[in-house]
């Protein structure tokens, strides 16, 4: 529902393809421009070639896990709002990511409307980045 203006660019990092695909479709339907990455390496590559207004990172990933990706993202783009997704209630990982500068966290399965609201809430306004 972004009225004509520059759409919000969102990056979803999760190795559950089924999840990222359907989430990306639904977000796109809400007017967001969504990219997905299935691994930390892919996500970092994409962040280097493209600017995003918000990201969603799953905590549990093969290879680089969510917290490590968060650290790299914060180095590459300190102002990027990041939402963490967690499949299990690992409080330590959640606390670590909040301390490292995550904007918020949600646990799977998520309420889609709440997720959209959070993304819109934290996202930088499209194009306000130089």
């Amino acid at each position: 529902m972004q009225d004509g203006a520059t759409p919000i660019r969102l990056l979803i990092v999760d190795d559950e393809r089924g999840f990222t695909e359907v989430l990306s479709k639904r977000m796109t339907r809400r007017g967001l421009r969504v990219d997905t990455a299935a691994s930390g390496a892919e996500a970092v590559r994409m962040l280097r070639t493209q600017d995003y207004d918000a990201t969603i990172i799953d905590l549990k990933l093969e290879g680089m896990d969510g917290v490590e990706i968060l650290k790299v993202f914060k180095l590459l783009d300190p102002g990027l709002p990041i939402l963490m997704l967690t499949g299990h209630g690992s409080e330590t990982a959640v606390k670590a990511s909040m301390r490292l500068g995550a904007a918020d966290y949600l646990s799977k399965p998520v309420d889609f409307e709440a997720l959209v609201a959070k993304v819109l809430n934290v996202a930088r306004q499209g194009g306000d980045k130089a």
């Binding site: 999840f19 639904r26 399965p109 889609f112």
Partner: peptide, 24 residues
């Protein structure tokens, strides 16, 4: 139990999202 819960959460999340997508 934690492992199982996590493994179940992912497919359940996908199911809910797919249902949402059908609703959309």
């Amino acid at each position: 139990a934690a492992g199982i819960a996590h493994e179940i959460n992912n497919p359940v999340a996908i199911m809910i999202e797919e249902a949402g997508w059908v609703g959309d």
